[in-house]
Every structure is written in structure tokens, then in C-alpha cells.
């Protein structure tokens, strides 16, 4: 009985493998899983991609959520999912690097998350409330130098692009600040507007969204972002800080290359859609165009940059 069953399972699996090779992927609905809360950056972007993705793939795209552990729960499941391309998941940098680095039990390894495409980023911005005495980045640095630890900077989560961005900036500017992690970038905004923190290290999306109520001192991108044309980069102001969160889609290890390419092309095509691009950029997202290989290189570069800093997080 056992052997019969085993044989049957092997046969079915074999047939499925053959099926996926011969039939043109995808032949049935695909699952796009977001390992974060609905309403966040990953979700907003995925919801905008959904109709276009359905048109390109010719199949229904089902978005669902696997929330927990700052994404870790979802990614731990992704690496155990059948690698047939019918389930792919949003992936985030620096999360997939910092979690296995700082946690003893993240449930996955960074190299088990196979990026298909990295389609957008949200660079860090340093922002203060509109009524803050800090008018420029220099004001901020000057005060922080004179009062070590007294400047409170809020941000989204621990071991995030916000925290690591602040750690890097503290080093570059030779200052000491107090970081307070909030549950998400949205949760940190009321703390700034209510005056409970002196500044936020947050993302361009938030900066754009609350443009009228906050003052952005600098943006941590290589060049100025289109949605915030008047905001100088840290580099312009003399600090070599380029940091932010990158987001894309990923599949489990051993996913066939042909499947990865279909998905990668689809995501690339969506990013080139003029109307889509305009809408996303207006919300502060920076579109990125990293294919499977370029994404892998991006991850490798970031691992090098983050590893020495990991021990300074959560201090």
C-alpha cells in the first residue's frame, strides 16, 4: 500500500513537472502573496500591478496576505512552497538580509529567496514637522552634536531601512540620536505631528503624502526623486547616504528559469506602462528595473553593506 501510494505521488509530481514544461506558464490563476499588512507600501503597489499583471499573464492574479514577524513568517513559508511559479511573494530589502542576520531563527536564508524582479524602491527621507526649528539638515546636525542622544528620531520597525539609514547617517555626521521604532511607517507620522519625536527617518512615499504637514530635510537617493523635486539629496549636502527599502517579487529556490523569465518580463512591462508609472511616482515610489540577475547582484551588494552594521542595530 505504502509503495503504491508513493509511486502514485511520484507519478503525479512527475506529470506536473512535465505539464509545467510543456504547457505555456501560466495556465491557471497565480497567487501573489504580500507578507505585510494590507494598506502598506507593498500592498498599494501590488494592488496597482494586479490588473496589468492579469492582462499580461492572461490569468487571474489572486492577492492574499501572510502577515507576521515583519515579513519573516511569509518568507519562511515561501521557501517551502512548490517552486512552480503559481505562488510568488513580495520581497523586501533590507528585510530579507537583516532578518537572517539578526535573528537566530528567521525560518529562511537570504539565498533561498529568489528575486524575480525588483520593481520599486522608497528611499529614506529625514523629515521634521512643519513647525520644527530645524529648517535645514545643518540645523539638525548642529543641534544633535551639541545634545548627544537628545534628538529622538522615529521610524518604521527595528532592523529596517529606516533604522539602518539613521545608523549610517549618525556615523557620517558624527552624531548620536535616539531611534524609536514604530509599527509601520504610517504609525510614525502621528508621533511626529504630535511632537512626540523630533524627526522621522521615513520613506519618500510618506514624505510625498504628508508634504504639507512636514518638512523634509534630505532624501537618501543618488539623485533627487521626481515626486520631491525641491528636496536635496544627502549627497548634495555632503553626506554619502544612499539608503532605502527595495521591493520586488520572489519565488522559492529551484523555480524553472522559464517561469522566472515570464514573471520578470511581466513586471518589467508593467513598470514601463506610462500611466502606471505616472501614478506610482506621484505617490513617491521610485520605479526600479532590476531583472532576476541584477536583483541577485543588488542583494549581494547590500549584504556586503549591511553585515558590518548589523551589530549596531537595536541599540
Amino acid at each position: 500500500m505504502k509503495t503504491v501510494k508513493r509511486m502514485a505521488v511520484i507519478l503525479i509530481v512527475a506529470l506536473m513537472c512535465v505539464g509545467t514544461v510543456f504547457a505555456q506558464y501560466p495556465t491557471r490563476p497565480v497567487n501573489y502573496i504580500i507578507p505585510f499588512n494590507p494598506g502598506g507600501e507593498s500592498d498599494i503597489f501590488a494592488r496597482a500591478q494586479q490588473p496589468l499583471l492579469e492582462k499580461i499573464l492572461g490569468q487571474k492574479v489572486i492577492i492574499s496576505y501572510k502577515i507576521g514577524g515583519g515579513g519573516a513568517l511569509g518568507w519562511a513559508e515561501l521557501v517551502r512552497t512548490k517552486p512552480d511559479g503559481y505562488t510568488f511573494m513580495g520581497y523586501n530589502l533590507p528585510h530579507i538580509i537583516l532578518q537572517p542576520l539578526t535573528l537566530s531563527n528567521a525560518g529562511y536564508k537570504t539565498n533561498e529567496i529568489i528575486p524575480v524582479y525588483t520593481f520599486m524602491s522608497t528611499p529614506d527621507v529625514l523629515a521634521v514637522s512643519a513647525s520644527s526649528p530645524f529648517k535645514t539638515l545643518d540645523d539638525f546636525v548642529e543641534y544633535a552634536k551639541a545634545n548627544p542622544g537628545a534628538v529622538i528620531v522615529g521610524g518604521s520597525a527595528s532592523a529596517s531601512a529606516n533604522e539602518i539609514g539613521l545608523v549610517m547617517f549618525n556615523k557620517l555626521a558624527g552624531i548620536k540620536t535616539t531611534y524609536i521604532p514604530f509599527t509601520g511607517s504610517g504609525d510614525a507620522i502621528p508621533a511626529l505631528l504630535g511632537g512626540h519625536v523630533s524627526a522621522l527617518m521615513t520613506y519618500t512615499t510618506m514624505g510625498k503624502q504628508y508634504e504639507d504637514q512636514i518638512r523634509i530635510l534630505a532624501v537618501a537617493s543618488e539623485e533627487r526623486v521626481p515626486s520631491l523635486p525641491n528636496i536635496p539629496t544627502f549627497r548634495e549636502l555632503g553626506y554619502d547616504l544612499v539608503e532605502g527599502a527595495y521591493r520586488g517579487a520572489a519565488v522559492p529556490p529551484n523555480t524553472p528559469e522559464s517561469v522566472i523569465n515570464v514573471l520578470a518580463q511581466a513586471f518589467e512591462k508593467i513598470n514601463h506602462d506610462a500611466e502606471f508609472a505616472k501614478r506610482m511616482e506621484a505617490n513617491g515610489f521610485k520605479l526600479e528595473f532590476y531583472g532576476p540577475k541584477e536583483s541577485a547582484q543588488l542583494v549581494a551588494d547590500k549584504i556586503k553593506a549591511y553585515t558590518p552594521l548589523a551589530s549596531e542595530l537595536g541599540k
Binding site: 502577515i67 507576521g68 514577524g69 515583519g70 519573516a72 513568517l73 519562511a76 513559508e77 539578526t102 535573528l103 537566530s104 531563527n105 528567521a106 525560518g107 520597525a157 527595528s158 532592523a159 524609536i180 521604532p181 509599527t183 537595536g314
Partner: peptide, 22 residues
């Protein structure tokens, strides 16, 4: 159980990935 709000440490997961989400 799950992520610490500050520090992000995984607490009381009893070695189970399923507990990461609290």
C-alpha cells in the same frame, strides 16, 4: 510571542516558525 515591538527580536517562538507572527 513573536516580534518584539522595539528591537525586533523573535520572542517565545518555542523553536516554531509558525509562532513568528505571534
Amino acid at each position: 510571542i513573536g516580534n518584539a515591538p522595539v528591537g525586533g527580536d523573535m520572542r517565545f517562538d518555542f523553536g516554531l516558525v509558525s509562532f513568528q507572527g505571534g
